[in-house]
Write a protein that binds this DNA or RNA. Structure first.
Length: 662
RNA sequence: GCCUGGGUAGCUCAGUCGGUAGAGCAACGCACUCGUAAUGCGUAGGUCAGGAGUUCGAUUCUCCUCCCAGGCUCCA
């Protein structure tokens, strides 16, 4: 047999006397690599370790500690999950079991309409460990469509996937499940179990084991809410117990930062049941933070040439008929109220039509453009009960909403300055890791000419590219009336959040017959840009809270300094210090000495107050304070009041951010 | 809206195989006057989410509604 040469990622080559498997290649390179190997790529295609390598192939060994390798582990673990469920519930149907971020899931339908309970997860996990102990091989087979259908007799979901392929439909989706136009592939583990799958898989189930089942949930078959609901089990799998523990720890960390938990602990906001789902009230501390966010935003908007407007919360139905909202957004709106002899009034879900009416209140000249109307506009949306979530998905929210009306010639410059403005504002709040997403024309529900869409999309793209940030394309993700750019921010623990949106709109100006008089004395239609930088104040609040784990920068903290006297006869001095700080605009409180100092310090720490000042005999005598700064190990004694006041004043004025994320 | 799991004191939770409930923290009172993350003792606090049904009797079983969590679908 002819010698075989394969090329490795570092550019080197290796020769063999015969066609070796990917695993043999790994072994020939080193035992550690062979041990870590879970799959390989040959000329860019992922294959099993057992695959024989063709001559001249470019081969990469995929190891379990890479993202690709973990995905192989997760996919294989998902198969074991399915096998365990079929072992425990004979006659169960299994649907799909893909890899997702940090884990996997598998969808099932249990016989007799049974459902998984939390206790079942433990049983399933135990059975999975048995299967792993059995070290069953993953053996790949290719089948024709008919063979596949026969093999999955009694498994309607598998057959549906295969049938879709046979009918020449849905090829792309089906390929992911192990089917291509000509054939389907399966992985055989034991006489009792094989699964439709594209692979690759680890060589045997003994290779797995660092996994956990997380939860059960319902999920629609094929994600379609018209179709039946299946039982989904979520799990996670990693290359080692250490990596698994790390993941579980990250989940705990995220839970610790959960804004709903922090909102209660820090006494910021609540959702009284008496008011209704998704409707928040902000307590004094939360209200202070909101006020500070809004005040700073207002200040920046004034400087950026926005004008402030105010509009009501309800309106006659006709306004939303004109805007088109009742055609395409009605299900997102609260039902109408009937008033004034049959007139229907709606709570507003968006502010745009109101701002348009302000534009239209008199004739406009090109000399006025661009006109930028800004409002903290409170809107109400009837979110389905299952989607309401903390402050991030609510039924009543306040948008930092503005609409820019400009000429086509001004559009590019406006987009550019808006983008610059957005990023600058977000950075001032301490978010600095961004990428942009460009959402283009939705195929099925777009209105307006393709030329308009193209022009608008290009204008957005140009503005986005000028920001020198990563730009991701969201094909077909735009609203029906225009394309949009959204700013995505990564927070302190690496999660991404959609923040600002900048949306171009040719439609509403037309629907409302907006116009201005140009230099040519003719009527022209303005372009409209919708933009919200926080998105909603509530949501931005939640993101900031989680980003800082509740320890907001001093300038945003509801209570910046708490002064504690060591004994109650230090209280007079404590108040003197507090007055000095209040005089420079700081938010300060003094707590009486009715508890031991340690307990009072603990309370202040739990509230994440940036500065705790302790004053005792020495301080009264010397005019100093003891400074216990949030995040620092040791307090600093004997700081001159003037020196502390000066540095605090500077820190607030500069809106300084915490030195390191907490 | 759909699926699963929940709702017991202000918070975190225990408990009742159907006989109306308990802890820790918090609150309140008294004592303690203290130098950097929990002082001690005491008191009060619950239509066991709400409603209906079954039952001699329901916080417990059944049904409905509301609210919450995690998903699905949707979305700022």
């Amino acid at each position: 047999m002819a010698a075989v040469t394969v090329r490795l990622p570092d550019g080197s080559t290796k020769e063999f006397d015969e066609r070796v498997t990917a695993f043999q290649l790994a072994e020939s390179i080193g035992p550690r690599l062979a041990k870590a190997a879970v799959a390989a790529t040959v000329d860019g295609v992922e294959v099993d370790l057992g695959a024989r390598l063709p001559d001249g192939a470019e081969v990469t060994v995929v190891t379990s500690d890479s993202e690709a390798g973990r995905n192989v582990l997760r996919h294989s673990t998902a198969h074991v999950l399915a096998q365990a469920v079929l072992r425990l519930w004979p006659g169960a149907h299994f649907a799909i079991g893909p890899v997702i971020e940090d884990g996997f899931y598998y969808d099932f339908e249990l016989p007799g309409g049974a459902h998984f309970s939390d206790d079942d997860l433990e049983r399933i996990e135990a059975t999975m460990r048995e299967i792993m102990a059995e070290d069953q091989p993953f053996v790949r087979h290719e089948h024709t469509i008919d063979e596949g259908l026969a093999l999955f007799e009694g498994q309607p979901f598998k057959r549906e996937i295969i049938e879709a392929v046979g009918a020449g439909q849905d090829e792309v989706d089906a390929a992911a499940d192990g089917a291509s136009a000509a054939s389907v592939s399966t992985y055989w583990n034991s006489p009792a179990f094989s699964d439709l799958c594209r692979g690759p898989h680890v060589p045997a189930t003994g290779r797995l084991g660092h996994f956990a089942l997380m939860r059960v949930a319902g999920a629609y078959w094929r994600g379609d809410d018209k179709r039946q609901q299946l039982q989904r089990i979520y799990g996670t799998a990693w290359e080692s117990d250490k990596a698994l523990a790390g993941h579980l720890h990250r989940l705990e960390e995220a839970e610790r930062r959960d804004h709903r938990r922090l909102g209660a602990e820090l006494d910021l906001f609540s959702f009284p049941e008496e008011i209704g789902s998704g409707l928040a009230v902000f307590h004094p501390r939360g209200g202070t933070i909101r006020r500070l966010m809004e005040e700073y935003s207002r200040q920046r908007h004034v400087a950026a040439g926005y004008e402030f407007v105010n509009t009501p919360h309800i309106t006659k139905a006709e306004l939303f008929e004109t805007s088109g909202h009742l055609d395409w957004f009605a299900e997102g709106m609260f039902p109408p109220m009937e008033l004034d002899g049959g007139h229907q009034y709606y709570l507003k879900p968006m502010n745009c039509p109101f701002h348009i009416l302000i534009f239209k209140s008199r004739q406009r000249s090109y000399r006025e453009l661009p006109i930028r109307h800004f409002e903290f506009g409170t809107v109400y949306r009837y979110e389905l009960s299952g989607v309401v979530h903390g402050l991030t998905r609510v039924r009543g929210m306040t948008q930092d909403d503005a609409h820019i009306f400009c000429s086509r010639q001004q559009m590019a410059a406006e987009l550019h300055s808006t983008m610059t403005f957005v990023l600058s504002l977000l950075r001032d709040f301490g978010l600095d890791d961004f990428f942009l997403e460009l959402s283009t024309r939705p195929e099925d529900k777009a209105v307006g000419s393709v030329e308009d869409w193209d022009e608008a999309t290009e204008a957005l793209r140009t503005a986005a590219l000028a920001m020198d940030l990563e730009l991701v394309l969201d094909e077909g993700g735009g609203a029906f009336y225009g394309p949009k750019i959204s700013v995505q921010a990564r927070d302190a623990i690496g999660r991404t959040h959609q923040m600002s949106t900048i949306q171009l709109d040719f439609q509403l100006p037309q629907r409302f017959d907006m116009e201005y008089i140009g230099a040519d004395n003719a009527r022209h239609r303005p372009i409209m840009i919708h933009r919200a930088l926080f998105g909603s104040v509530e949501r931005f609040f939640a993101i900031l809270l989680e980003h800082y784990a509740g320890a907001l920068p001093t300038w945003l903290s509801p209570e910046q300094v708490r002064v504690l006297g060591v004994r109650d006869d230090h209280e007079e001095y404590a108040h003197k210090v507090a007055d000095r700080l209040s005089a420079v605009g700081a938010r300060v409180s003094v707590e009486p000495a009715d508890e031991p100092l340690g307990a009072r310090i603990r309370r202040a720490k739990l509230l994440k107050v940036p500065y705790i000042l302790v004053v005792g005999d020495d301080d009264v005598a010397a005019g100093t304070v003891g400074v216990n700064r949030r995040g620092s190990e040791l307090p600093v004694r004997g700081v001159e009041v003037v020196a502390f006041t000066d540095q605090l004043e500077r820190e607030i004025a500069e809106r300084r951010l915490p030195e390191s994320a907490p």
